[in-house]
C-alpha cells in the first residue's frame, strides 16, 4: 500500500443521550488507514456509528479522543489539533457526501451555487471560471449543466445525491467520504457514478471511504472492506479475502452463508443482518459487543473484550477467529 492519505487512530465519539444523563458511545476506538487512491468500503448495520465516524473524521463534530492525520500535498495535517482557518483550509483535501440528500442541500441555494461553494470558499475559482467548472462537474455526474439554476426542491433524491457528489469533487480533494452516496440511484446511473469515481481515482489518485449497505457496490469499487459493529471495527481486510472467507461471526452473518443461485440477485443483495438487536450504546457491554447475538459466544466473550488482530492478512476482533 502507498502512504496512507488518511490515518485514524483510536477515535472515540459520544453524544449526550436524549433525555437521561448518560452518553451514547457512537464510535469506540476506531483505528484505520486509507491509502492514496484506495477505496475502503465501510459496512455495518444501521446505527452502528458509520456516519458518526465520518463526522468525527471531518471534525464536524469534535471527537472525544483520537488522532486524525490527513496527508495533504504540502505535508501531513493533524486535523484533531487544527482549529479555525487552518482546519477550514485542510478540509479542501477531504470532502464528504452526506447521507441525507434532502437535508444536506440548502433549500434556498441554487444547485450551481451549492456546487460552486467549495470553489469560492477555498479560493479556487470565481466568476466565469467557476461557472465553467460547475457545468463540467454537473455533466460528469450525469446531470447536465442546466440544473445549475434549479433549486433542490425541484430535484429528485437521486439528482440531489449527484449534486452532493459534484460538490464534493469540486475542490479536487485527495479523499472523499461517501456516506451512502449512491443509494438513491438506479442501477445504470449508479454504474455511471461509480465509474466516474473510479476514473478520478485512476487519474487523480482519489481515495475514498465508501459507506454503503450494498454488496454490489462493495464488489464494484472497494479495495478493502471494514466491518463496523456497535462503534467498533470488527474486521478489516482485502475485499476478495473478506468476502470469500469472512473471519468474524458478525461478518459471516452479514454476508449470509447461504449462497444465492441467481447471480443477478446475488449482485443486488444488500447487507441485511441477523436477528436480535445490538446492545444499547449507552451501556456498552464489558466483553465482546457482539456476544449477545453471536452463535459461537463462550464465557470469556462476555468478560473479555477482543482486540483487532491480524489473522491471515485480515484484521479480526474475535477471540475465536
Amino acid at each position: 500500500m502507498t502512504a496512507p492519505v488518511l490515518t485514524i487512530h483510536d477515535l472515540h465519539l459520544s453524544y449526550p443521550a436524549r433525555g437521561a444523563t448518560g452518553t451514547v458511545h457512537a464510535v469506540r476506538g476506531v483505528s484505520m488507514e486509507v491509502g492514496a487512491g484506495e477505496v475502503v468500503a465501510l459496512v455495518g448495520e444501521s446505527g452502528c456509528g458509520k456516519s458518526s465516524l465520518a463526522r468525527a473524521v471531518l471534525q464536524l463534530r469534535r471527537p472525544d479522543a483520537g488522532r486524525i492525520v490527513l496527508e495533504a500535498p504540502d505535508g501531513p495535517l493533524p486535523l484533531h489539533e487544527l482549529t479555525g482557518n487552518a482546519l477550514r483550509h485542510a478540509r479542501r483535501w477531504m470532502q464528504v457526501v452526506f447521507q441525507d440528500p434532502y437535508a444536506s442541500l440548502d433549500p434556498r441555494m441554487s444547485v450551481g451555487d451549492a456546487v460552486a461553494e467549495p470553489l469560492r470558499a477555498f479560493g479556487l475559482a470565481r466568476g466565469a471560471e467557476s461557472r465553467k467548472r460547475v457545468a463540467k462537474l454537473l455533466e460528469q455526474v450525469g446531470l447536465g449543466s442546466a440544473v445549475a439554476s434549479r433549486f433542490p426542491h425541484e430535484l429528485s433524491g437521486g439528482q440531489r445525491q449527484r449534486v452532493g457528489i459534484a460538490r464534493a469533487l469540486a475542490p479536487e480533494p485527495r479523499i472523499v467520504l461517501l456516506d451512502e452516496a449512491v443509494s438513491a440511484l438506479d442501477v445504470s446511473l449508479r454504474a455511471q457514478v461509480l465509474n466516474l469515481l473510479l476514473d478520478l481515482r485512476r487519474d487523480l489518485d482519489l481515495a475514498m471511504l465508501f459507506i454503503t449497505h450494498d454488496l454490489a457496490v462493495v464488489r464494484a469499487i472497494a479495495d478493502r472492506v471494514a466491518v463496523m459493529y456497535l462503534g467498533e471495527l470488527v474486521e478489516v481486510g482485502f475485499r476478495d479475502t473478506l468476502l470469500r472467507s469472512p473471519r468474524h461471526p458478525y461478518t459471516r452473518a452479514l454476508l449470509d452463508a447461504v449462497p444465492v443461485p441467481d447471480p443477478a440477485r446475488q449482485a443486488g443483495r444488500t447487507l441485511v443482518a441477523l436477528g436480535g438487536e445490538p446492545p444499547s450504546q449507552e451501556s456498552v457491554p464489558r466483553g465482546c459487543g457482539f456476544a449477545n447475538r453471536c452463535p459461537l459466544a463462550e464465557e470469556r466473550c462476555f468478560s473479555e473484550r477482543p482486540r483487532l488482530r491480524p489473522v491471515d492478512g485480515t484484521a479480526v476482533s474475535c477471540h475465536l477467529a
Binding site: 478540509r91 452526506f98 442541500l105 460538490r167
Partner: peptide, 14 residues
C-alpha cells in the same frame, strides 16, 4: 442543527 450547515462548513465556508 441542519445538515446543510455542516455541509457548508465541510465545503470550507467561513
Amino acid at each position: 442543527g441542519t445538515e446543510f450547515m455542516d455541509a457548508a462548513r465541510a465545503a470550507g465556508s467561513t
